[in-house]
Every structure is written in C-alpha cells, then in structure tokens.
Simulated assay, not measured.
Amino acid sequence: MEFYVPLADTPEDSETLYQELAALYKGTPAQFDERVRLIRWSHNGEEHVAEVGKGIKATKPLSARDAARVLAIYQGDPWVIVREPGRSKWNDSVLAGPRTVKEAQFFDQRASDL
C-alpha cells in the first residue's frame, strides 16, 4: 500500500500533513520507506490495533470515541498515534510505550514483530 494521510487530496498534501501532524503532536517523522501503516500494542491487558485510515480496534468493544480515524503513526518513545481532530471526547492522539508494541507494519508492506 502506498503512503497516504487521510484528509489529504494528493501525495504532496499527504507529505505536508504528515510533517505538520508530527510537529503538532510531537511525533518523529520517519523516512519515506519507514512510515508505519499499522501497529498492534497492549494496554491494561487489552490488545489494540491502530491502522491509518481506520478507527482503533481492541479485544473488547470500545466506545464511540475510538471511531475517529487514525491519520498517522509515528514510531518513537512513546509511539504517537494521531486521530482525526474533533471526532473524540478524548485526546486526538494516543501514546503507546515502546515495550507495549508487539507488531508494526509499514506502508511498503513489510512487517516487523517487535
């Protein structure tokens, strides 16, 4: 799958928005071939999956607040998962500690068990 950011109309807009979201939410932008499309992590004994363009899924049903689409995922300490602003009563970003992340998939289709 090619890299994209939901809400962007063109590849150039995706790049600009990716950089702007990183600055706004204190994420670390990755090189083009290392951009994360999906991560799987655990929190309080529950497994979560965040995929760009989709809502966050978990082993237990989540409230409507988690229906906000994921716009970008930034690898780091912590990982930063940015969701659509204004679609949640909670923060627009979710943090995942590096030790909690079990898997990452990148836009170039390679997968990595962490």
Rank of each mutant, 00 (worst) to 15 (best):
D92T: 10
A68Q: 03
E51Y: 07
W41A: 03
S112R: 15
P98H: 09
A96T: 04
A111K: 10
I39M: 02
N91H: 10
L38T: 11
V52I: 06
D66H: 13
A50Y: 01
S112Y: 13
V36W: 08
P98N: 08
N44G: 06
V80H: 09
V36K: 07
E46Y: 12
R40G: 02
A68F: 04
Q109F: 08
R110F: 00
K54I: 01
F106P: 03
I81D: 07
V49Q: 15
A104Y: 12
L38E: 11
H43Q: 08
A58P: 06
S93M: 11
G53V: 02
R99C: 01
S93Q: 13
G53S: 03
K89W: 07
L71D: 00
Q75C: 04
I39S: 00
V52K: 02
K89Y: 09
R99W: 05
H48E: 11
G55E: 12
R65M: 10
I56A: 04
V49L: 12
S93E: 09
I56V: 14
V80I: 13
A104K: 15
R40F: 00
D77A: 15
A111R: 13
A68E: 04
A50R: 00
A67K: 15
R65I: 11
Y74V: 07
P85M: 02
I39Q: 00
G97H: 09
A64N: 14
R83V: 07
R87C: 09
E46P: 05
K54Q: 14
G45W: 12
I56E: 06
W41R: 00
W90N: 10
S63T: 12
K102H: 10
K60T: 08
E47R: 15
A67V: 08
G76F: 03
A64V: 08
Y74S: 01
A104H: 08
I56H: 05
H48K: 12
P61T: 12
V94I: 12
V36Y: 07
E46Q: 12
H48Q: 13
A104I: 14
A96G: 02
A50D: 01
T100Q: 14
